[in-house]
Amino acid sequence: MSIIKAQNLNKSFKVKIKEKGILGSLKSIVRPKYEVIKAVDNISFEVNEGEMIAFIGPNGAGKSTTIKMLTCILYPDSGEISVLGMDPTKDRKKLAYEIGTVFGQKEQLWMHLTPYDNLKFFGAIYDIEDKEIEKRIEHLKEVFELEKFINIPVRNLSLGQRIRCEIAASLIHEPKVLFLDEPTIGLDPVVKDSVRKLIKKMNKEFGTTVFFTSHDVSDIEKLCKRVIIINNGKIVLDDSMANLKYNYLNKKIVEVKLKEKIDFENVKGIEVIKSNNNNLKLEIDTRTTTLADVLKLIDDENIIDINISNTPLEDIISSIYKEGAK
């Protein structure tokens, strides 16, 4: 059953352009020039209940704009949105009770209060009875391991602890859908990893549908079964992670250091990317040839060092971007 549905969404922004110099600024007062930027360009997609979906793309691709339209913050210029069967532009309040939001770059917490007081505050915002709030805080404390710092003012917490509290606070009203906008931005690798684990756990534990944006490729590799890639306001790919891997991970990279050089030019299914004396970097198309066949071409004793790897996901996505740009 689809829980989020977007159809032919459009959103553009008018941005004032200013010419340089004093004359330019005087000109822009008298007759301002505007440029229309299409942030989201006719996109449609659906998300099913319990799904964990990543919305990824480079900076300025339209990820945040989309997530803001889904969470009632921005009004779309045209198109239709339905979240849990409700229209965010009409049922903002009703919908707000059912969704949770985390914006990585913006703090929603009161910095001078403890996580405990913050949770109580957000509980009150969602009209939850005091007793029930206590119960939920207890549960969140366990799941998110807040025990150690639940009574320390938020401003004294580390960034990692803070983001954990942010996510916990967004779950106090047990939302059916959780929107996370760049939840891992600016975090160090260790913290990033723990946030990812949390999101995964939450999806399992609470059955929450998770919709999140990121420009960090490793986020989706670790988290998602389905990916939507957006670039320049358009969806360039909407596919399962498995398909993405099958279609774009059909290439292997073999880096090999040899005693004597072998000529691989004109061998079917092998492309020489780099050739530097006896160091070779080969790309092997596994649909036409197998790795075993390739290795047969090289004499065991000729090898000094060998390294076989997948194409990095980053390269795949940038190649999709390039296709999208065409």
Binding site: I73, F103, Q108, D127
Partner: peptide, 11 residues
């Protein structure tokens, strides 16, 4: 753009 935090609250 700091209204975001208030818009997502059901109040």
């Amino acid at each position: 753009g700091k209204l975001d935090a208030y818009i997502v609250q059901p109040k």
